[in-house]
Nucleic acid binder design. Structure first.
Lengths: 338, 338
DNA sequence: CTGTTAGCGCTTTCAA
DNA sequence: TTGAAAGCGCTAACAG
């Protein structure tokens, strides 16, 4: 167990100085402060090294009040309960700065951490992972630390969503894509394109509408598709919230779903079952993913780095399709007009 | 700050023994063990007394993954962030035993705790509150520790839900009540009755249907009301989930909402805005309530018990009404038939 | 601003 | 099984 003493030796200062730096109490020269911080990072020192604050599993998500993240927290909590650990929950509020600051808190106080990050770079995360053997990235894939990543196969998700419609005879399928430049968005879109190509269809960029991933964004994106007078019979969306916007836009224009246009979502949020019509969607097994992440974190720290080779080196979950009432067989007589 | 030494003196044992009891390490005689536990309870000793694990705010809710509780956690987290505290989240899984066990964990590890409990008795909670000056009960009112309780005025909530309908001309208003025997349920029903009486109407128990507070429960309760062939023009429900069930039951029977029957919910969950029609409901300001609770907890421990007299002695929040599309002016020609 | 030193809370060792 | 006492990790007081 690395103590404040080791850090002091590493940084060539006294233990008192290290203590001061950690607690930001008295003034410390910036040279010494950075030296201490470097030593802490190098040795992986934790304030939680005393027995009682140990056994903490940290969770970082964007917003605790979002149902999707609620499921993640619940998954981790299940494992924590089973293993007599406690749960430290922090949210990063959708900003890179807070994400960074929050991860550092977790590094300091926890033995384990399940982290959902959208805005930090691969390099930065690799460094954090090095400092904490029990750090697991959720919904993210970084090749060099792939044994520490648990992610959903978003390409496959986009693929099965689109294939479901293709199997029902749809050939003119629009896509409401998130305008955010993150892997989730590009991967799901990739799956959409893959399915079309597999059915021998060309990809027409006109059928793809970029918009903000909110209900209003989904509504606007749908308006844009409709305005182009495309022979649309179905729409695949980036997520359920956008699908809700799409349903609203269709209803406002007297277009019936699924009779005239089918819609599929992504995530299977609680609201999916309450929309009208009930939304067919791709199920994102968030709680299961979080449980797996938590178990992996415990394993990695129990057995230490030595045990790593014995584990599966990749953890990619496969989403499944949930059929409800927003999709139906394509009955449109419109000829395919690309 | 009460230390292991104080506990040892109180229990007439050595500090070593107390340490052993706390950490369940070596064997300790049951007599000594219970003596130590009693001393701990009496003095309110915390293992978190060392600086680093301090500054923890504990939150207990039934289920972290429920959106309603997510809002509560978020509210507490906001305050925690502003005050440089961390958040320990535990869920009690809807059982009295887990609630008890969870609260004890919080007593041991936190300086502050925001607790939502459904199943523990007033007496038990009063005892816990005594042991921890920073314990705040949310959504609960116990008279002798009312300065530690933050609750919603559920009577008023049921009242404004019903009054909204009365103002729109409805006179035959059903009520879908939760069959759970908790204050929330009886208070909301009380508000319903109050509003009817204020409008000079008699209360007919036939219009009140007891059912489980779930979507399926709401559906069944609505069937039961319909089966009685009452001249119903509106339904007030215990919560939004039941209202969703009511809307489904009406739609299945070809009864239009709000044209034939108006429906109001309670809580204003996320789903309320996604239902068809969008649900008019009573807004439960969960996040604001949690923020207030967290701030109160910090205040109480900062100033110690001495400062209590200077605070407001009661913290009752007033809900407001959110009108959407599930309620309309009563157009029914049916004569009032009680 | 920093190191020395004393001290605190807690755990562990050792002897009974 | 228990207490006395030593030891550990950290903080606080003081001196320079």
């Amino acid at each position: 167990m690395v103590s404040i003493k080791d850090v002091a030796r590493e940084a060539n200062v006294s233990t008192a100085t290290v203590s001061r730096v950690i607690n930001r109490q008295s003034n410390t020269s910036s040279a010494v402060t950075t030296a201490v911080h470097q030593a802490i990072a190098k040795l992986g020192y934790k304030t939680s090294s005393n027995k009682h604050s140990a056994g903490l599993i940290g969770v970082m998500v964007s917003d605790v009040s979002e149902p999707f993240f609620g499921q993640i927290i619940k998954g981790v909590e299940n494992v924590a309960r089973q293993n007599d650990k406690r749960l430290l929950v922090l949210s990063s509020q959708y900003s890179a700065d807070t994400e960074r600051q929050t991860i550092k808190q977790l590094l300091n106080h926890c033995d384990h951490a399940i982290v959902h990050t959208k805005w930090l770079t691969d390099d930065e995360l690799i460094e954090y992972a090095r400092q904490m053997p029990g750090l697991i990235l959720i919904n993210r894939y970084i090749k060099s630390i792939r044994h520490r990543c648990i992610a959903l196969d978003n390409v496959h998700g986009g693929y099965i969503a689109t294939r479901h419609l293709l199997n029902k005879g749809h050939r003119n399928i629009g896509y409401l894509c998130s305008e955010q430049n993150i892997d989730d968005a590009t991967h799901r879109l990739m799956g959409y394109k893959q399915a079309l190509m597999e059915f021998g269809l060309d990809i027409d960029e006109q059928f793809i509408s970029l918009c903000y991933p909110s209900e209003e964004g989904g509504r606007l994106g749908t308006y844009n598709l409709l305005a182009k007078k495309l022979p649309l019979t179905a729409i695949v969306t980036y997520n359920d919230i956008m699908a809700a916007g799409a349903l609203a836009a269709l209803a406002e224009n007297g277009i019936k779903c699924p009779d005239d246009i089918s819609v599929v979502g992504f995530d299977d949020l609680i609201i999916a079952g309450y929309l009208n019509p009930k939304l067919s969607t791709v199920r994102y097994p968030a709680a299961a993913m979080a449980e797996q992440a938590a178990r992996l974190s415990l394993k990695l720290t129990d057995q230490g780095e030595s045990g790593q080779s014995s584990f599966i080196s990749e953890h990619i979950l496969i989403p499944s399709f949930v059929e409800r009432n927003s999709t139906s067989v394509c009955t449109s007589q419109t000829p395919v007009v690309f």
